[in-house]
């Protein structure tokens, strides 16, 4: 906030337009990925969308500061995730889904759609924070990056990742009709 206030007043309009363009560029590159990141850990698409929308309004408002971050995407992702947690807290985590075995056709996924189904199946088996770690693993983040975004210790991230791997293996061996693969 302090950075934004420190900027000289006057050419407000021009500055706003530049910021908007930069933010628009950011969105066109990252919007789908951000949306999917949230939807992978929230089974109510509307809730995910609300959280992202809220986060992006803040991001646009503070874009001058945020865009100077090393990787603005990480900041936006972190804020969106926090917003989602707040919404979840408010809903008392009522959007739980029934657990089901993974369907045979996604044990060896071939299309992008099947990959996403397998991802969602896996995510459903995990507790909330494990799910967030899993979603960030899918984004290709390192342990440290995950720890920094989710406000966790690095050892915790390593522990959670090991749990995710174990659950994933167990899920596949349960879903496969001919024993463990």
């Amino acid at each position: 906030m302090s950075v934004a206030l420190a900027l000289p007043p006057g050419d407000d309009g021009a500055r706003r337009r530049t910021t908007d363009r930069s933010f628009e560029q950011f969105l066109s590159e990252n919007y789908t990925a951000l949306e999917r990141f949230l939807q992978r850990q929230c089974f109510d698409p509307h809730l995910a969308e609300d959280a992202l929308h809220e986060a992006l309004i803040v991001a646009l408002d503070k874009w001058e500061t945020v865009s100077r971050h090393e990787k603005p995407l990480y900041w936006v992702r972190k804020v969106a995730w926090y917003k989602l947690q707040t919404l979840h807290d408010r809903q008392k985590w009522k959007d739980t889904v029934p657990l089901e075995n993974v369907a045979d056709d996604v044990v060896e996924p071939r299309t992008a759609h099947e990959v996403e189904r397998l991802v969602l199946h896996t995510a459903r088996l995990l507790p909330a924070q494990h799910r967030a770690v899993f979603a960030l693993m899918l984004e290709g983040d390192t342990d440290q990056q995950i720890a920094l975004q989710l406000g966790l210790g690095e050892k915790t991230v390593a522990t959670y990742k090991a749990t995710v791997r174990r659950m994933f293996r167990e899920q596949l061996s349960e879903g496969a009709p001919d024993g463990p693969r």
Partner: peptide, 21 residues
């Protein structure tokens, strides 16, 4: 607009882990 948000760059490892958590 800005509620419960930390403008701090998350990748800036300038805090120790306990402080960050």
């Amino acid at each position: 607009i800005l509620t419960d948000v930390d403008l701090h760059d998350p990748l800036l490892a300038d805090l120790d882990e306990a402080q960050r958590i």
